[in-house]
Amino acid sequence: MNCVELQQSLAEVDDASTAEQQAHVRSCPTCAALVKELNQIIAAAVDLRAADEPSPRVWANIEAALRQEGLIRPVSQPFLPSLSAGWRAVAWLVPAAAMLLLSLGIYLHRQTSPLHAPAEASLSVAAPADAVDSDLLQEIAQNSPAMKTQFEENLRQVNQAIVDSQGWVAENPNDAEARRSLLDAYHQKSMLFEMAMDRSLQ
């Protein structure tokens, strides 16, 4: 069984429990990662069914009202504690969690018909995580200093893409294409974190 056959077989046996599937998963890290991610999504999706999120327009209105009231301001503090003090051992859980959330976002997005996506799907919009970025760059500077500038520049580009898409989505919450661009930008950011964890950089 090769990667294509495995992915086709997952439509019938999605937990990859057959002997043939297991044999391929044991020898292919890419498919092993895919099966693991699918299992996580399936487990998390069960909990999500209970959630009944209002449309993004509701969130946008609430946010606008809170800003008008002066109750919220642009984020000046990192939304996560600094990973440098005592958190370093679990630092990589952050991108892992981000990847899981991202996968969930994509999964939910794909489950929704494009015609109904703007009204039914919800998408949380967050600013690029500067604190996490600088921890990532610090790790790269230690492990692979030659790559730091390249990672810095690419993180900047991905963060810019996130900000661009966020701005457009905030102004046009029903624009499914812009929402997809935002998801793609998050996906690219998670890929950067994944690359930083690659053994070739350790």
């Binding site: 090769n2 294509v4 292919c28 790559m147 690659d198 070739s200 950089l201």
Partner: peptide
């Protein structure tokens, strides 16, 4: 004609 996975930052 087997599966090919290539990953490289730069």
């Amino acid at each position: 004609h087997g599966d090919v996975t290539l990953e490289g930052a730069g």
